[in-house]
């Protein structure tokens, strides 16, 4: 039995062409995932610290966090990326490698959004939990880490998953400074073959699969959290 018994020569050639493009583009999955997951991890860490600072009694910390969040949310991500990769080396007189610049830009940007998500989560926790911790003289940081944030997690998890999904999509921008991620690879092969349709469609399929898997993992984790608290 031969595959050509079922499809025409032209169709066979088209499939080979798509597979060849996919073979080149898919190598960007690892890069996209590396940047997105590392940036998501750092963004959640920094965002959590910012949210905790925001609830402390220190006015300087509070104002600093507000200004930071406002700037990061009020300026385009592309501008932030260019600033870190092109402008910051001039100011600090150091060379910033593409990898560091990409991770830094993504995680600093994400942290601002995560801080707001966690702030909402903290506000959703019953005021009585704060009062109980205070009445037992539990230190602020201990209270946040062991009592408030675990309770906030349940309500913020869907938003956090959304943020990770956004981050994966936004990471496509870092191709501009030369990172060979999914999007960049699709662009390279599009320019080489003078064909934009196939490489972009292939990249879209890969992005869609990655994001669907992340969303599915999020649903499972959310369900497990709900089961535990019930």
């Amino acid at each position: 039995m031969n595959i050509l018994d079922f499809i025409s020569h032209q169709q066979y050639r088209d499939i080979l062409y798509i597979l060849k493009i996919a073979q080149y583009v898919y190598k960007g999955i690892f890069t996209t995932l590396l940047y997105s997951i590392l940036a998501a991890f750092l963004g959640i860490m920094l965002g959590t610290i910012l949210a905790i600072f925001r609830y402390s009694n220190n006015r300087i910390l509070l104002i600093s966090v507000k200004v930071y969040v406002s700037i990061m949310r009020g300026t385009p991500f592309l501008l932030q990326l260019f600033f870190i990769y092109f402008a910051l080396p001039g100011i600090l007189k150091i060379n910033i490698p593409i990898f560091i610049a990409g991770i830094l830009a993504l995680s600093l940007n994400s942290a601002a959004y995560v801080a707001e998500i966690i702030r909402g989560g903290i506000e959703s926790v019953d005021k009585g939990q704060f009062e109980a911790a205070k009445s037992l003289s539990i230190p602020y940081l201990e209270m946040m880490i062991s009592i408030i944030l675990p309770q906030a997690l349940k309500s913020i998890l869907p938003s956090l998953i959304n943020e990770i999904v956004s981050l994966i999509k936004e990471s496509a921008v870092i191709g501009i400074i030369g990172v060979a991620d999914l999007m960049r690879r699709a662009q390279i092969i599009a320019a080489e073959k003078y064909d934009f349709i196939t490489p972009l469609c292939v990249a879209a399929v890969f992005y869609y699969i990655i994001i669907s898997i992340i969303a599915y993992i999020g649903t499972i984790v959310e369900k497990k959290l709900n089961d535990r608290s019930n």
């Binding site: 019953d126 009585g128 109980a132 911790a133 539990i138 230190p139 675990p150 309770q151 608290s229």
Partner: peptide
Amino acid sequence: KIGFIFQHFNLFSNMTVLENITYAPQKV
């Protein structure tokens, strides 16, 4: 040394009964 008993109990909902009681003595 000042304890407070709340109208709505305010037990930490993410901790078991034992964890609720033992957490503060360990940390504080």
